[in-house]
């Protein structure tokens, strides 16, 4: 992994611009296509053409998927000058992921937020995780502070409530999507096919947790901070104009690793695991702790629990 503190010799922004200009020159005759598809992440005419006709992820043959992946990697190279590896690791058998957060332990540092931003190649104006500073005596989200900016946290009389995609078992966003660009995978992860989404944002109105984020413009992604280990349904660089969301770090968790937010949490407030494994930590939490879920009354069956020590 890159050390984000490393400073290059030249300001990378200059490099990025130069790379862009070189890419533009290379594209040559496809300049027209550039102008038309630029903001949508297209590149050469042939790639733009292939992108346009690319099928839904679940409908593609293996050959088509590998072609699409080659294109994704080529686009990332052209656009960011970075060699990424995009895989399509499928869900493991007998695994459904769940998450539990110890509200007593969360101290509002937002380390998870920024680990997620780096791991998942988020546009630097997007954060999948929202930590809400709440009054001790209230569970009313409306009176929480999303933008707390104190010198020191935690503050007396406050507790901190991290929110992200709850990966509902009955997800209203999946129901809402008119083109089935978002669906629940066998391991319970609600994913988005960024190459199929039409950007209508109906899923965003349907989500009770404000978990979905739209790429209003082209993602602002510093090339030198790109995480190159990516997944088709996960953290590969996204085009503009599509919706994205937390995917439980599908590129990591399907290989047995922890999601980046769990790894970054310095207080151990985050517990991730397989809900189908009776010996997993999350099952212990669900069986032995006083747990609650947010907006449970809406019937979305989130696979994301909260609990307190006392």
């Amino acid at each position: 992994m890159k050390n984000p503190d490393e400073k290059g010799a030249a300001p990378p922004g200059v490099n990025a611009r130069r790379r862009f200009l070189q890419g533009l020159a290379l594209a040559g005759g496809a300049g027209a296509a550039h102008a038309a598809f630029g903001a949508w992440g297209g590149s050469t005419l042939s790639d733009a053409f292939a992108d346009f006709f690319q099928q839904h992820y679940q409908r593609m043959t293996e050959a088509e998927i590998s072609e699409a992946i080659t294109r994704i990697e080529r686009k990332a190279k052209r656009r960011y000058g970075v060699d990424i590896q995009c895989d399509t690791t499928p869900a493991q058998q007998g695994v459904v992921f769940g998450y539990a957060i110890n509200v007593s332990k969360c101290r509002g540092y937002r380390d998870c937020v920024h680990a997620c931003v780096r791991e998942n190649n988020l546009s630097r104006d997007t954060q999948y995780i929202r930590v809400i500073e709440m009054d001790r005596d209230s569970t009313d989200l409306r009176h929480g502070d999303h933008y707390y900016d104190h010198e020191q946290v935690p503050l007396d009389g406050k507790y901190y409530l991290p929110m992200q995609c709850m990966h509902c078992d009955n997800p209203p966003c999946v129901k809402a999507c008119p083109v089935e660009a978002t669906w629940t995978e066998p391991d319970g992860i609600v994913v988005v096919d960024y190459d199929w989404c039409i950007g209508c944002r109906y899923c965003m109105t349907a989500c009770p947790y404000q978990a979905r984020h739209f790429n209003w413009g082209s993602p602002a992604l510093p090339p030198e901070e790109i995480n190159t280990a990516t997944h088709y349904l996960g953290n590969r660089p996204r085009p503009a104009g599509v919706v994205e969301k937390c995917h439980f770090c599908v590129q990591r968790t399907r290989k047995g690793r922890q999601p980046a937010c769990q790894e970054a949490c310095p207080t151990g407030a985050r517990i991730f695991g397989n809900l189908l494994d009776p010996d997993s930590e999350i099952r212990y939490v669900l069986a032995n702790k006083a747990i609650f879920r947010l907006k449970e009354d809406l019937g979305t069956e989130p696979k994301f629990w909260y609990f307190r020590d006392k």
């Binding site: 101290r107 509002g108 540092y109 937002r110 380390d111 937020v113 920024h114 546009s123 104006d125 997007t126 954060q127 929202r130 999303h146 933008y147 707390y148 900016d149 104190h150 010198e151 020191q152 946290v153 935690p154 209003w216 413009g217 602002a220 207080t267």
Partner: peptide
């Protein structure tokens, strides 16, 4: 545990402020 400075909070989106 002691207190600490939190990492920066969310932004609205590019082009707009807080």
């Amino acid at each position: 545990l002691k207190t600490r400075t939190p990492e920066p909070g969310p932004r609205v989106r590019m082009g707009l402020g807080r």
